[in-house]
């Protein structure tokens, strides 16, 4: 399989099929980043198209000696944040479709307490809602780390911060996530009996 960087070079030489391959490889991650940040399906799709057009137009600026993934993810993050700032709105999340997908695709083997998790779909929804309420900076780092499973170095390259800073930001994002979750439970008077079995 050709590397992303080679496909980028071929695109610069005028091979549109190479760019089409890049679109197919990255449409999922680009769309995920933008959808998680904006929370709107249709807008996320339009912005994703905008990202790929931008990538195509700016591809001559891409250094083919570097990795392509952080470069395109950086453009996706910046475009999504720019969209939010332009529209000055913080999004009414409609995670119904993602939540339904999640319920269908839950990998039971990876859940620490499968019984608890499956019996408490509401708990999962609470955590998803808490993710949505994170500030944009924390949300971005959470998406890159957990959804796209990027390494700390890749996240650092994407966000233009140091590797150490990535770890700090992830830690703070997790603390913020927990804070939002607990505050939500306290507000609703919800109390979960968590299984402590390992």
């Amino acid at each position: 399989m050709l590397s992303d960087e080679l496909l980028a070079s071929q695109t610069l030489d005028g091979e549109l099929s190479a760019f089409e391959e890049l679109v197919n490889r990255y449409k999922g991650s680009v769309f995920s980043i933008i959808y998680r940040i904006t929370g709107q399906y249709q807008e996320a799709e339009d912005i994703s198209q905008e990202v790929f057009i931008t990538v195509f137009q700016k591809l001559y600026q891409f250094d083919t000696n570097k990795k392509f993934a952080p470069w395109i993810h950086k453009i996706a993050v910046n475009t999504a944040i720019s969209y939010i700032r332009r529209h000055k709105k913080y999004i009414v999340y409609s995670f119904d479709e993602s939540y339904m997908n999640e319920q269908n695709n839950l990998p039971k083997s990876t859940i620490i307490d499968p019984e608890l998790a499956l019996e408490n779909k509401e708990l999962y929804q609470d955590i998803l809602n808490a993710i949505n309420k994170l500030s944009v900076n924390y949300k971005v780092v959470i998406i890159l780390r957990y959804q796209l499973e990027l390494t700390n170095q890749e996240i650092a390259d994407t966000l233009g911060i140091s590797k150490e800073n990535v770890e700090v930001r992830i830690h703070r994002a997790r603390k913020s996530l927990r804070k939002i979750l607990i505050a939500d439970w306290e507000q609703r008077g919800v109390k979960y009996e968590l299984s402590t079995d390992k």
């Binding site: 449409k27 999922g28 769309f31 995920s32 959808y35 998680r36 996320a44 799709e45 994703s48 993602s98 939540y99 997908n101 999640e102 695709n105 839950l106 990998p107 990876t110 859940i111 620490i112 307490d113 608890l116 998790a117 708990l123 999962y124 955590i127 998803l128 993710i131 959470i142 998406i143 780390r145 957990y146 959804q147 499973e149 997790r174 996530l177 927990r178 979750l181 968590l194």
Partner: peptide, 14 residues
């Protein structure tokens, strides 16, 4: 539990 949710965020496709 948070980890399991975060690691299994549904893959989104346009």
């Amino acid at each position: 539990i948070e980890n399991s949710v975060l690691h299994n965020l549904p893959a989104l496709e346009p």
